[in-house]
Computed example of a mutant assay.
Amino acid sequence: MTAIELKRVANVIRQDIISMLVPAKSGHPGGSLSAADIVATLFFQEMRINSEDPLWADRDRFVLSKGHAAPVLYSALAEKGYFPKEELQGLRQTGRMLQGHPDMKRTPGVDMSTGSLGQGLSAANGMALAAKLDAKDYRVFVLLGDGEVAEGQVWEAAMAAAHYKLDNVTAILDFNGLQIDGATDSVMCSAPLAEKWRAFCWHVIEVDGHDVDALLAAYAEAKQVKGKPSIIIAKTVKGKGVSFMENQAGWHGNAPSVEQGEQALKELREEAANLG
């Protein structure tokens, strides 16, 4: 896909996120919207996957460590054809497939059940180590939240990935600067992030997380790194694409009303029209 086509996909994903959350009346728009460009470039360009065979043994794996951002993953999976788009309207409803956090046993295309923060990198390490032991060439991508990296297990997993030289692991940090209680630096400062990951023997790449060309270049760079895992620190905007949600911690875990949803979709559709 071209950069413009990927931007259109990211816009569709953002529209889907809003359209899911309004009827659900609960969920997490802020961190889902911030990650749309990351997920769009992974699922529609970078990852080797097959929606007709979700359990294909040689597929690349994706772990949404910040599982509360499930809507961004569900939209990408629906747009790729893993399940009908109509399922998106059943988000967080009893008996439906798409729950508040990803469930690998119920949702095609979900490689790891997540929700308890801090555990995704450990799971990704296991998948990557299995690939090494089985002489497979698939890659494992894991999306972390910047509030999540205050969890100690993240750093234990970071040490393990470096120790086992898991160069088939690429972590992407959605660095939007906000979490449920406010600014990440105020709640639990994890700065300086790049220096910390380098100290843990990771290859570090810093990019604008809304620049699709920069993201694709970062994935390509990570693929060339041998002997150590890579992390892409992607600077993003919480609530990206919706004016009244951008950079507002209050939209971490609150669903928009019907009226707010209409306004958000109006803005996103105008953005799509401007993309041509």
Rank of each mutant, 00 (worst) to 15 (best):
A3V: 14
E5R: 02
L6K: 02
L6W: 02
K7S: 07
V9E: 10
A10S: 12
Q15D: 00
I17W: 01
L21R: 01
V22Q: 13
P23L: 03
G27V: 09
G27F: 09
S32D: 03
S32L: 10
S34K: 08
A35C: 01
A40R: 06
T41V: 06
T41I: 04
E46S: 04
I49E: 09
A57K: 15
D60T: 12
D60P: 07
G67M: 00
P71T: 04
L77R: 07
P84R: 03
L88R: 04
L88W: 08
Q99M: 05
H101I: 07
R106I: 03
P108I: 02
V110G: 10
V110E: 07
G120W: 05
N125S: 11
M127F: 15
K132R: 11
K136I: 05
Y138P: 14
F141M: 05
D146S: 00
G147K: 05
A160K: 02
A162I: 07
H163K: 11
L166S: 00
V169E: 03
I180V: 15
D181A: 08
C189Y: 08
A191S: 01
W197Y: 15
W197T: 09
W197M: 12
C201L: 14
C201M: 13
W202Q: 01
W202P: 11
H210Y: 03
A214N: 00
L215C: 12
A220G: 01
A222E: 12
K228C: 08
I231E: 09
I231Y: 05
I233L: 15
K235I: 04
T236Y: 08
V237R: 15
F244M: 10
Q248P: 11
H252I: 10
G253F: 11
A255D: 07
E259V: 10
K266G: 04
N274Q: 14
N274G: 13
L275G: 08
